[in-house]
């Protein structure tokens, strides 16, 4: 299995809103982040939650978001503060606009 993204890639979290069990917090959906690290393939929790084996496995990424990207200034944080979360690959899209900037 080859990883879809590599460290430093710019990504956007999907805005899906499925009814079942997911591990992508709502506050990060639709937000632009950067891959910090890859944690390898894991059984898919969206399947595991219903007694299934979780295949195919999904690569999990540590994605970093600027606080301003997530909260647009409405929060108690400093300019350089960030939030990172583990996001599975099927929740991530390449952020082509930002990739072309770099």
């Amino acid at each position: 299995m080859s990883a879809r993204f590599k460290t430093g890639d710019c990504v956007i979290v999907r805005t899906d809103n499925p009814a079942g069990h997911v591990r992508t917090p709502t506050y990060l959906r639709g937000k632009r982040g950067v891959i910090l690290r890859e944690f390898g393939p894991w059984p898919n929790p969206e399947q595991l939650a219903y007694g299934k084996p979780g295949w195919p496995r999904k690569t999990n990424y540590w994605v970093q978001f600027a606080m301003d990207e997530v909260w647009g200034g409405s929060g108690a944080y400093a300019k350089g503060d960030t939030v990172v979360a583990e996001i599975y690959e099927h929740w991530l899209e390449p952020d082509t606009a930002r990739r072309s900037e770099s």
């Binding site: 591990r23 944690f39 108690a76 400093a78 503060d81 583990e86």
Partner: peptide, 26 residues
């Protein structure tokens, strides 16, 4: 930063506070 202050922790703005949301198997 507000939560940290409630724990008595004040960090200068030159320090990046990186909040880690533990959402998966790490």
């Amino acid at each position: 930063r507000a939560v940290l202050a409630e724990f008595g922790t004040d960090l200068p703005d030159t320090v990046e506070v990186r909040v880690v949301d533990s959402t998966a198997d790490c």
